[in-house]
Design a protein around this nucleic acid. Structure first.
Lengths: 320, 320
DNA sequence: CGCTAGCACTTAAACGAATAAGTGACTAGG
DNA sequence: CCTAGTCACTTATTCGTTTAAGTGCTAGCG
């Protein structure tokens, strides 16, 4: 049987603006004006009430598709993420963005797209705006006044990275490494740049960048970590993610090195694994909810609103 | 400044079916018939070519919103997931579903919704179908012939759970525990039921269910794991996720218990953390791509197609 | 008393596609 | 020679909203 689509099911009649108009004995235009609170329209309170009551009585809700056709775009913003494997940071970002959009009568939909814009989805729903996460992480929309270095203005990931390194600096570490996965990553270069910037502004020495093997080859990991711990002055390693941190810690355990004495380790984005493993991982918890809200407003072309305070904090556990 | 939406930007004129019709000197109906290969229409090959050439020359692509209004639903299927924190399983599921839908001229969009259907998104885009992940995991759509127990037909999670426990059974374990997070979870009960079913069909003893504290309280975890290892005949523990497995392993390390000798541990869904931590975690890798494809076809009301073979396998590492 | 202005609405035209129901021209059958 | 049928298209309607442009009525002003 060839995979042909069967014809769409017979349409269950839906409640339209016309039904509301009839019920309230007005025209559809009046209904639209009332329900949308269109400014500059003179409609008596009595009529307004009639319309509103008819609408709820019939259970009317506007047909987003028809509206989108008329308005040229749907009340949706599309977020393109590289993959569905998110952490706490992405989760809170999406939650915040979604909540803020709901407030503004829009909704958030997520799509995966490796690179480029999700053209098919855009064709399909004509979103009000499309945001690529990787782009946005470096976007000036994140900027706002912030305590610390960098002339007071920081992008999101920059800020979290500063949080991460500041903790290390406060513990007295001067020579640090930054470990990131060896597999390709859209924002790896950005992250490295942020780490180097943060290190400079905190007065640390040059950062050793370590691309850690994240496959089954534990030997390679061990060799890399041994080299780091024994042949360099590095005393602490900040990581791209909790997973990478766990890799460093795993190699250290095999080498009988202890955190934080032999090497301090701090993760990023507070996953479950780091919390429950042994030794418990120090990490930075990112509350991207505020950023998500900002992202929502920026996507709709609104004023981003107030800057959110302390969007990231260090969760101190056993490895620093 | 009150947060009012600014008026939609002046619409950049888009290429419509009318433009194509004009360019090809035919009516819009003809264009539609040609581009959609509508059956039962007699249109000469010459005309068809003219239309198609005009369409590509103008860069025409149909306006999904207009089409959705006319057809009553958009060519989109909506997947509602409880959170953006997915693992390999979700990632491959989404990838497979998305790919299959693309084949069928639809696209996949993801939304988060704690419980219930994502009503706002549905209103907004009138999706062809909406799938709640949690529902779908238990759905009969997953069913197909499969080697092993359960009269040859298994749902997806059932299948993966069987893979997980079979490995333990093959290693000679009879008394096992199943550890799951203590925080609420939409599919926890299902998982437990599947584990019990699998244990029965494999001839194992009754399964001890352990809800593991997944917060900062390492003592509680340790106490629970000590009890399990010392006061029960349990020799192996299967877990809800790699994260839970790492928690068990962490507690074991603190108690100086060794895997697999004191207690064997097998995770679920092969995350990065389990692969790189020490000892390296045995786990089950789920390739949900095939399930995603099936889901796509089921969502569109098509025949699910052939059953996919071996959608999950055990990655044997150091803990079993 | 004629005219304008405001009020409280209504009419009608989009938005872009899909498709049922035509419409001439030509062919074939009786 | 008349009619029915096919061919190759076209015309016109529909989906459900939003919104510019009316419309009839009353009040107020000069």
């Amino acid at each position: 049987m060839p995979p042909t689509l069967r014809p769409p099911a017979a349409r269950p009649r839906r409640v339209t603006i016309r039904d509301v108009a009839t019920a309230a004995s007005v025209s559809t235009a009046t209904v639209s004006y009332v329900l949308n609170d269109t400014p500059g329209q003179t409609i008596t309170e009595a009529t307004r009430r009639r319309v509103r009551e008819a609408a709820v009585a019939l259970g009317y809700s506007p047909h987003g598709v028809a509206r989108a056709l008329r308005e040229g775009q749907s009340r949706i913003v599309l977020l393109a993420v590289p993959s569905m494997r998110g952490g706490r940071g992405l989760e809170s970002f999406v939650a915040g963005m979604s909540a803020e959009l709901r407030t503004l009568d829009h909704s958030l939909l997520v799509t995966t797209s490796e690179d480029g814009l999700p053209r098919e989805a855009i064709q399909a729903i004509a979103p009000r705006a499309t945001l690529r996460l990787a782009d946005f992480l470096a976007e000036s929309a994140w900027r706002g006044p912030v305590l610390g270095a960098f002339d007071g203005r920081l992008a999101g990931l920059e800020f979290h990275t500063l949080t991460q390194l500041r903790h290390l600096a406060e513990r007295g570490h001067r020579d640090i490494a930054f470990a990131l996965p060896d597999h390709p990553d859209p924002i790896a270069d950005q992250r490295v740049a942020h780490v180097e910037g943060a290190a400079t502004s905190l007065g640390l020495g040059p950062v050793r960048v370590l691309r850690l093997e994240m496959g089954e080859d534990a030997h390679a990991r061990r060799a890399a970590v041994r080299e780091l711990a024994e042949a360099t002055p590095v005393t602490a390693v900040a990581t791209y993610s909790d997973d990478v941190a766990l890799g460093v810690l795993g190699a250290m355990a095999a080498l009988r090195l202890r955190a934080p004495d032999d090497l301090a380790v701090i993760g990023f984005d507070d996953g479950e694994a780091g919390r429950v493993s042994q030794p418990a991982l120090t990490t930075v918890r990112i509350d991207a909810g505020g950023f998500g809200r900002r992202a929502a407003r920026v996507a709709l072309g609104l004023d981003p609103g107030e800057w959110v305070e302390s969007p990231s904090e260090v969760i101190v556990r056993a490895t620093t």
